[in-house]
């Protein structure tokens, strides 16, 4: 009996909704993002790789895996090899906490909101290490910018998540989802629209997408922190970015949009919940791609100023509103 349970758990970790599903879905999200981005710019986007270009991210990944892997003389060999692997491992680990096929993730423990927030901070740190270890001046500039931007977006991101946790009076993702499904009956975005907006904006900064792609800024500092990475290592970084997209949109779905819950046929919940998860994350990605194609890159000081001057007070205001609503007994 125990071996069977262990096997099922292992399958959950590796196949669904663990590693393999998440990687495939990450590739799909990248394709969705690129296609939408192209549509907004009046282009067509990937077209000839697989049906409608669906396999483009996969083709990029395989090509990079098969390319020569250069380690520059000036790089710190151990750190240079380790950071890409760690980045992928850490992003996969955080995804285990996201509820995909049921109201709980594969892993769930008390206080996992804080754990997930902490690990998503490690993303930023790993990017800084990645730039630092490659020993190139462009990546050094990229590292500095990552650090500075990190100071900007991390606090509003955490505050927006905290306001949701305050509304549900719980620090466990499962409980927050349960609260929306069973007690409130509404997704929390109804009461925390400001927090949702702040979450999306800081998520863009976390993913280093266009208005906040300052650390990569191809036109200024070539490729930022990833300038020296080639072949397998670059492939892993790209994979990690895709996984982060799944993580960010999945967490938004879980915290603000009622998790993977939706109308379903009794008995077939896992399938319907997965479909609802995909629909909700695609909505989040749609908003993110919109923002990405609407804006031009900000300057680094504008980003830090903007986050601290406007986002943090707004996030605090949102927490106050939530507390007021709880005090009045609305939620």
């Amino acid at each position: 009996m125990e071996t069977i349970e262990l096997l099922i758990l292992l399958l959950k970790f590796i196949v669904f909704p663990g590693a393999i599903f998440c990687i495939a879905y990450g590739f799909f999200l990248e394709w969705f993002d690129r296609k939408l981005y192209a549509k907004f710019q009046n282009r067509i986007g990937p077209l000839l790789t697989g049906p409608k270009g669906l396999l483009q991210p996969f083709a990029d990944f395989v090509k990079l895996l098969a390319k020569e892997d250069i380690t520059p003389v000036g790089a710190d060999k151990l750190g240079f090899t380790l950071t890409p692997l760690l980045t992928v491992a850490v992003s996969l680990f955080t995804l285990l906490f996201i509820p995909i096929h049921s109201l709980t993730g594969v892993l769930s423990l008390p206080g996992d909101v804080l754990l997930v927030l902490f690990i998503s901070t490690v993303f930023g740190l790993l990017i800084m290490f990645a730039g630092y270890f490659s020993g190139n001046r462009f990546s050094m500039v990229g590292t500095e910018r990552t650090g500075l931007q990190f100071v900007g977006y991390e606090i509003p991101f955490a505050l927006s998540v905290i306001s949701v946790a305050a509304a549900a009076r719980s620090l466990e993702i499962t409980n927050i989802v349960n609260y929306q499904v069973n007690i409130l009956g509404l997704p929390l975005i109804v009461f925390t629209p400001i927090a949702f907006a702040i979450y999306l904006i800081s998520a863009l900064a976390k993913l280093e997408k266009i208005p906040f792609d300052i650390p990569e800024a191809e036109t200024e500092i070539v490729g930022g922190w990833q300038v020296e990475y080639s072949g397998k290592k670059l492939a892993f970084f790209r994979l990690a970015t895709d996984l982060k997209m799944v993580f960010v949109s999945g967490l938004a779905a879980a915290l603000f949009l009622g998790g993977p819950y939706g109308p379903s046929i009794p008995g077939l919940e896992p399938i319907f919940y997965t479909i609802w998860f995909i629909i909700k994350t695609l909505i989040v990605m749609f908003i993110l791609s919109n923002l990405r194609s609407l804006f031009a890159r900000y300057r680094i000081d504008q980003v830090v100023h903007g986050f601290w001057k406007y986002m943090v007070p707004l996030a605090v205001l949102q927490i106050l509103i939530v507390e007021g609503l709880i005090f009045m007994g609305v939620i």
Partner: peptide, 22 residues
């Protein structure tokens, strides 16, 4: 690279760093 011809159809991307390009 612009909308009229859009070589991203073929998967072509313009990269900044020689390490990333083919």
């Amino acid at each position: 690279l612009t909308p009229r011809f859009d070589v991203e159809r073929f998967g072509i991307l313009l990269k900044g760093s020689p390490r990333h390009a083919d």
